[in-house]
Amino acid sequence: MSKSVDETVFDFFELLLHEDDSAFSASPINSKSSATSVFDVSIKTEAQQLNDAILAEHERSKVDARASTVPEAQLARAKSIVTVSTKENTEPLVNKQALERLLAPVLKTQEPVIAKPTVLNEQPLSLPKPVEAIAVTNVVKPADVEPQQDEIISTAPETQVGFAPPSVTKDLQEVLDDEFQVLFFKVAGLTLAVPLVSLGGIVKVERINHIIGRPSWFLGVQTHREEQLNLVDTCAWVMPEKYTDKLAQSVNYQYLVLLEGSNWGLACESLLNAVKIHKSQVNWRSKAGKRPWLAGVVKEQMCGILHVQALVQMLDAGLGCQDSIG
């Protein structure tokens, strides 16, 4: 169970990471890792650039470490590969490719949105040449390819820092103050956040009436103050690919998070807390994607924050989480 929880949280996070990739090139997001350093290098100070370059080369040196264990001929070939890739100015692309490979099983339903090399041409990376030499000679220990990829990927989530002015969540942000409160709630190990201004209320799950002929994510109808609330099986809606019969049986819905301006309620297992956060603490979506209901990621809690207006639109239209509006 704990594994599925981790997977779920990771899925959510990498989802945003993946969909925002192409946006990073246009937005002034700071970055610490090699995976994204190429995109914002133009706005960094020289010291930052150097720092990033060293980090990038450090990662690359680990890859090259494998080459040191093979005969010299292979090492030479590896060197030539590194040299060629350096000439083509694609070192960061190696990381992106590794990222793509690792995320491929998770993102199989999505079209990969990987930054194109043309972006590199627009913002050429000026790595110091001595670092390139370190990449080849700084051979320390052998390592397998797979763990190496894991290491590269593991740094990716840490790059989600900074604040990009979003476009698709502009309407939501206009409603929110610089500091705003969000409520965190949990479903099958997955934490989600909803801004309090978009929260219609909290209701305890009581008698749920099942209505025939509705989508599998439609939990049913519950009467509340003489009105019918339409309940969403949040787990089934948010992660249908993981919603097995076993998971469905284990989910124990306790509360309904009502969506403002609608009669929709998201079923959840527990309410965590309501905290005040700053807009800059959210990595807002800046590009329209397959999940308009997701406004972004709260960086500290590493959880998705809901775009309630879009979510209500989708639910009204009977759409699933990966359908696009209109």
């Binding site: 025939i212 002929g213 109808v221 003489e226 009977g318």
Partner: peptide
Amino acid sequence: NAPNVGTEESAKFIQGVSN
């Protein structure tokens, strides 16, 4: 009105709900 999110054939059997 019943929640209008049904796509299955059986959705059309329902003409309304009442509390």
